[in-house]
């Protein structure tokens, strides 16, 4: 992945511009949200319970877990009427090491009471435009030999349309979704344009995770993902506020984890208790390392992390 003949000192000298841009982007992100009335918060990196997710494996820490995402804590704050929140936090996911993955990475999450998934996408467009503007790039980001035109609104495509076009099957009506992920990364993502960001939206209801089901089309969840320059950048939800429905989904996920991963997962009770107070809101999680990769014209995460895992 990196040049193995390089010493640590040489490597750190080479990636310095990337780390300087990281610091600069943090400043821009913080001022973007502060100027719009969002409160920056910090929540535990080491937590007694985390959201059960079959495909996200946590690191255990003396009976606790290292945070895989700050989502549950963010919603507990929202439930206590903190209306607009953001956080830049360290997250940890076991075995996720690759060109665009590091087991420890930085997540930018923000939430809006009264918002929905598409409003979070609008925010993302504004945020990326604001960063590009502050870095004097205007509406075009040079990336991997392409000029990405970030003029809003970005392209939007439903999961149904994207899959029908490039794979010939519709995950929204299909019973078996076992090929969803492989088709997404090997057929759908490579077909996305490199010169425009694109939003993949309206995921199958069974992939809702912590998002709410669309009231006019119960086959889909109000969930959207942002793709830029071949990278999955962010995942947005209209947040599910129904504690009973959320408990059922968690229960089914916990059963799957126990069956497939032989791991006992604890139900996040405090989070579920808080949900009864949660007002309709939108939330989004953005991998800020990838945002920094984008503005640093690299598709290798190790180029923007001082000490990536080997």
């Amino acid at each position: 992945m990196t040049n193995t003949d390089e010493t640590e000192r040489q490597r750190l000298a080479r990636i310095r511009p990337g780390l300087e841009k990281r610091a600069n982007i943090y400043r821009i992100v913080r001022s973007f949200f502060c100027d719009r009335g969002f409160l920056e918060v910090e929540t535990p990196v080491r937590a007694p319970t985390i959201a059960p997710e079959l495909h996200i494996e946590p690191f255990e820490s003396e009976g606790y877990f290292l945070s895989t995402s700050p989502e549950l804590y963010m919603k507990r704050l929202l439930s206590a009427e903190y209306e607009k929140l953001f956080q830049i936090s360290h997250c940890f996911r076991k075995d996720e090491k690759g060109k665009q993955h590091n087991p420890e990475f930085i997540m930018l999450e923000w939430y809006r009471t009264g918002g929905d998934y598409m409003q979070m996408i609008d925010d993302t467009e504004q945020l990326v435009v604001h960063i590009a503007d502050t870095l004097h790039l205007g509406m075009h980001i040079p990336y991997q030999g392409h000029m990405i035109d970030i003029t809003p609104p970005w392209l939007r495509v439903t999961v149904k349309d994207a899959f029908m076009k490039h794979t010939g099957w519709d995950p929204v009506t299909a019973g078996d979704l076992s090929n969803f992920d492989i088709d997404l990364v090997t057929k759908i993502m490579p077909a996305f344009p490199m010169n425009r960001p694109i939003i993949l939206m309206d995921y199958p209801a069974s992939m809702a995770s912590l998002s709410r089901i669309n009231s006019s089309n119960p086959q889909v969840a109000e969930r959207a993902e942002v793709f830029i320059g071949g990278m999955e950048l962010a995942n947005a939800f209209s947040e599910l506020t129904d504690p009973d429905q959320q408990r059922k989904r968690f229960q089914s996920e916990i059963e799957q984890i126990s069956k497939e991963r032989s791991r006992t997962h604890i139900m996040p009770e405090k989070f579920l208790d808080s949900l009864m107070y949660l007002q309709p809101c939108g939330g989004i999680a953005l991998g800020i390392d990838r945002l920094i990769m984008l503005f640093n014209d690299t598709n290798i995460i190790d180029d923007v992390v001082a000490f990536p895992e080997a």
Binding site: E225, E232, A285
Partner: peptide
Amino acid sequence: AEFMKPGKGRAIYR
């Protein structure tokens, strides 16, 4: 060996 993974999806190894 390339590791690819949708955020909430299964890991894929190419």
